[in-house]
């Protein structure tokens, strides 16, 4: 998984299908980098995600908690259209982690 550090902001480029099987590998990579680099912002770039079930929601909520524990923030950006229903269903919009504009575009 590609990652990029920009100042104190860490961007992770999540790719492929996020299910229960793949979520473990993504979680371990993300948590390893968080512990190593202590970013103030973790940006999960979802532009390369082709499929996601509720394991992706668990992954986001887990990283949200981890970043909070370290005093940082989490953002999920470039969410593909196909994942919108899942994101809406999850209640994540209440946590202010989804990229601004996500709720407004073509959701209704």
């Amino acid at each position: 998984m590609k990652s990029k550090m920009n100042g104190s902001e860490l961007t992770l480029y999540v790719t492929g299908e996020i299910d229960h099987h793949n979520a473990r590998r993504i979680r371990e990579t993300a948590d390893g980098l968080i512990q190593q680099k202590h970013p103030t912002l973790l940006n999960l770039n979802f532009s390369g995600v082709s499929f996601m079930d509720s394991s992706g929601i668990g992954l986001i909520m887990g990283r949200y908690r981890t970043m909070k524990l370290y005093g940082g923030r989490l953002k999920v950006t470039e969410i593909p259209k196909g994942l919108r229903r899942m994101m809406e269903l999850s209640g994540l919009s209440g946590l202010d982690v989804l990229e601004r504009g996500f709720d407004e575009n073509e959701c209704n």
Binding site: I57, G58, S90
Partner: peptide
Amino acid sequence: EEDRAGLGFAVMQSF
């Protein structure tokens, strides 16, 4: 503890 969101059936029902 495994980051399970508890949304499995809710997702099935919605989809």
